[in-house]
């Protein structure tokens, strides 16, 4: 809807043995999302989520499951050093996600 902010949320895989620093990315992302005028960061427990970012610490991607994907219209999956199956260096993951969230 024009003028309405798109609601973005974050869900972790469970962090059993992460290859990337999930906590750091999880801290950076909400702040970065809040700086975008058309995006609103919300809790994963809320409804009407437009995009859910599933943050997984390794390629096993335990968090990428139907029950979590179903919470939003669209999802972005981080699985270790990759975003939606495209290799991305750990330091660039937050930037790559923000880029994906912006309208093309």
């Amino acid at each position: 809807m024009p003028g309405q902010k798109r609601r973005v949320s974050l869900k972790y895989c469970g962090s059993c043995n992460p290859l990337i620093d999930l906590s750091r990315i999880g801290q950076v992302l909400p702040a970065a999302i809040s700086q975008e005028t058309d995006l609103l960061f919300v809790s994963a427990e809320e409804t009407n989520i437009d995009t859910i970012i599933i943050l997984c610490g390794c390629p096993r991607a335990c968090g990428n499951k139907e029950t979590i994907r179903a919470r939003a219209l669209r999802c972005i999956v981080v699985a270790g050093e990759s975003v939606d199956a495209v290799p991305v260096a750990e330091k660039d993951i937050s930037t790559a996600i923000i880029k994906k969230l912006k309208p093309k």
Binding site: L10, Y12, C13, G14, S15, L22, G26, A44
Partner: peptide, 8 residues
């Protein structure tokens, strides 16, 4: 904690 909720 959100990071560990899915496991714990």
């Amino acid at each position: 904690a959100p990071e560990f909720e899915e496991l714990l």
